[in-house]
Design a protein around this nucleic acid. Structure first.
Lengths: 197, 197
DNA sequence: CCTTTCGCAATATGATCGTATTGTAACCTT
DNA sequence: AAGGTTACAATACGATCATATTGCGAAAGG
């Protein structure tokens, strides 16, 4: 077989261009030409790696999720010693907030993709399963924290996890719109967490 | 002056078509032709009432806000006797959730418009001011409820209002994605409210 | 070396886009 | 009744869209 190129790497480069455009001007502005220009390649190349615009968007949505997972993984060690469920929980909640430029870009692009997911079963299911995973993990940490005496023992972990996740979801839009500073958003999370102890 | 037609009524009819399309297939699917077809009028008419697509979208965004105000006004009386700040607060929070079909449609369209607002100063400012009004009102009710002994006296009304509003914002997306049933979403709000007493 | 296949680039195609232009029937004013 | 203005409808226009087609240089296997 001729010419060795990393297909997935190429796809990723193109997908990142998609996300930059979506973050800046919305999914409406994502066209094959714009993507090619943003990525600095020919539209022939874009077509070579994605048979259709739709497949390209699906792949880009997958990239968004990978970004999120990286962000969480990067935030967790900073939570301090391992097996500190309350600190881990806080770290994940903070990691989900769009606090820096990359975070904001991903959150904007994510919001744009979410709109599309509302009308497409395949994408919606990916959002659903991803969220279920996070809620389950958070609920587990809440349980652990309660067992360790870091939190009250009478709280419903699943319910509190849903509250916290909805809270960060709302805070994310508030941050994007400039309603809160990053410090305020984190303070709100800490405020809510403190109530659970 | 000839021919008497209600300009604003015509504009509203067209804007409703815009919102239906945006809710169903996103802002990408909103074209002058599609809007005209959805509204059952000629594209000439659409052009006659909106000099550009952009003006049409801005007007439609304004309609969304009016929908929201109507929903709140309609929800408030059901809160029971007047001057019941805690019940009023709960009524507004519930009214902000996309629980019925109209609510879901508006929430979807609102999300689509919000994406665009993130990149346009004019729209973003409208979102900001609208939110500030709601937070201020909610904070006032929290204060009243605390004074009336319905809530704890040591809470920070502005902070709690921000928490509650972020919570309903997150719950709104969760509802749209099917993470929660309407009953679950309301239960989450009540759970959080109960904690303030 | 030669052939095959990959990795594109370039260009074509037909649809759809926002907007501009033109025409006309209906109505109000005078 | 005449003239002017409004409220459209119809259509045209150039740009841009997603996608299809074609061609070609480079590399690896035989």
């Amino acid at each position: 077989m001729p010419r060795r190129v990393d297909h997935d790497e190429r796809r990723r480069q193109i997908a990142e261009a998609v996300l930059r455009i979506a973050a800046g001007r919305g999914l409406e502005a994502v066209s094959m030409r714009e993507v090619a220009a943003e990525a600095g390649v020919s539209i022939g190349r874009v077509q070579h790696y994605f048979a259709s615009k739709d497949q390209m968007l699906v792949f880009a949505a997958g990239r968004l999720r990978e970004h999120l997972e990286q962000r969480i993984r990067r935030g967790l060690p900073a939570a301090g010693p391992p097996h500190a469920p309350l600190r881990s929980l806080r770290a994940v909640l903070v990691a989900l907030l769009p606090l820096d430029r990359d975070g904001r870009e991903d959150a904007r692009a994510g919001a744009a993709v979410l709109i599309r997911a509302l009308g497409e079963a395949e994408l919606a299911e990916r959002y659903r399963s991803g969220r279920s995973d996070i809620v389950a993990t958070m609920a587990e940490w809440l349980r652990s924290a309660a067992d360790a005496g870091e939190l009250r023992g009478d709280l419903d972990p699943g319910l509190e996890a849903s509250v916290l996740l909805a809270l960060v979801g709302g805070l994310a839009s508030d941050l994007l719109l400039g309603h809160h500073t990053p410090e305020q958003a984190i303070a709100i999370i800490d405020h809510q967490l403190k109530r659970l102890s």
